[in-house]
């Protein structure tokens, strides 16, 4: 019988290019080479997942799942978001205008509509652990166009806050936050810029916390008081895989 399974995927351009090159090398440019290679790759991946689990568990599961397994919905999640953001995401009618307006959505699988859907249906872990939550540039185009006047950015930022509270954060962001705590600037000055400043006739250090230790101390107080330092300490960064 002919294989009838079909999956359409979006992937990083460079990954796609590299894969195609390898496929061409291994199977040649024949029709069906891609399907062959992809099936092989999937089977390899499935096998390694089973092996990682252990022989007992591997036996318990059938080889190919057709339904995604997700954590059971959390009844409170949507309510939490509504309360924390002041944004009623339950108003969403899933029209998709946000996705069509999104600059990230244009080039990745990031789908703001789906995130709001999953959030309002209570799929807390799936949403908060997803890297998709971090692909929004907060450009606000979706907010301007939403027919239900939902501030999508506000909802996403609230969910980001919730993710970080749970310790889920991206590695580079932990670095930026650490800089902020140490220097009072998310982007602190570097040697090259000090030189440039002198060259331009400006003070070597700008009149910010860089120059005023007392002010820096104040900033650090605030960051401690508001729990920011604690949050960053507790964060267990995920690998920022390519999206």
């Amino acid at each position: 019988m002919l294989p009838m399974g079909r999956i359409d995927v979006m992937m990083a351009d460079d990954l796609e290019r590299a894969f195609r090159e390898k496929v061409a090398k291994k199977f040649g440019m024949r029709k069906g080479s891609m399907s062959l290679a992809i099936e092989e790759a999937i089977r390899e991946w499935m096998k390694s997942e089973e092996e990682a689990k252990g022989p007992e568990e591997a036996k318990a599961k059938p080889p190919l799942e057709h339904m995604e397994e997700v954590a059971p919905p959390s009844v409170d999640f949507a309510r939490e978001i509504v309360r924390a953001s002041g944004e009623n995401i339950n108003k969403c009618i899933q029209c998709g205008n946000c996705v069509a307006s999104c600059p990230s959505g244009r080039i990745t699988a990031y789908n703001s509509r789906r995130i709001i859907r999953k959030a309002s249906m209570g799929y807390k872990e799936e949403v908060l652990k997803s890297i998709d939550l971090w692909l929004c540039t907060t450009c606000y185009t979706c907010v301007e166009r939403c027919p239900r006047k939902i501030d999508v950015v506000n909802a996403i930022l609230t969910m980001r806050n919730m993710a970080v509270e749970n310790g889920w954060m991206l590695e580079p962001h932990k670095v930026v936050s650490t800089n902020l705590i140490k220097t009072g600037h998310a982007v602190p000055i570097d040697q090259a810029t000090r030189e440039r400043r002198k060259d331009l006739g400006l003070g070597e250090l700008p009149p910010t916390v860089h120059q005023y230790d007392g002010a820096l101390f104040d900033v650090q107080q605030i960051l401690k008081e508001t729990g920011f330092c604690g949050l960053i300490e507790r964060a267990q960064p995920q690998k920022a895989a390519s999206a």
Partner: peptide
């Protein structure tokens, strides 16, 4: 004098409002 990062809307606001 003594101003700091605003703080950056994309990062700090994402972590702790």
């Amino acid at each position: 004098k003594g101003a700091s990062c605003c703080p950056a809307p994309g990062v700090v606001k994402s972590f702790s409002r």
